[in-house]
Amino acid sequence: MKYLMMIYNNEPAMLGASKEQTAETLAAYAAYTEALQKSGALVGSNRLRPSTNATTVRVTNGKTQVLDGPYAETKEQLGGYLLIDVPDLDAALSWAARCPGASRGTIEVRPIWEMTDYR
């Protein structure tokens, strides 16, 4: 089954981190992603630019509204994601627990709604 792991972290703290801390975090993520890849579980992953670079779009009554900023203005923001393919939820949760972001923020694990599951 495919699962999306969404990494939520404290954005201000993340951006305020020292150079050394940031380098350490990036190295931890590199090792983690490598391990996922070697196990054959990794489908794709990306880090996201800070939510200050986000733009929100909504169309109401045919009129397009474009707004500066993320969907929700909260301290915890989506900072990146990993798409994995593993046998079951337990496997996904054990990968999520090893994610460097799990010890600083929260990882939300969601099953992918496959097109073949539509009824």
Binding site: P87, L89, D90, A92
Partner: peptide, 10 residues
């Protein structure tokens, strides 16, 4: 069913 919770003794 949908989140893939396994039937397994841990």
């Amino acid at each position: 069913r949908e989140a893939g919770i396994p039937f397994r003794v841990p």
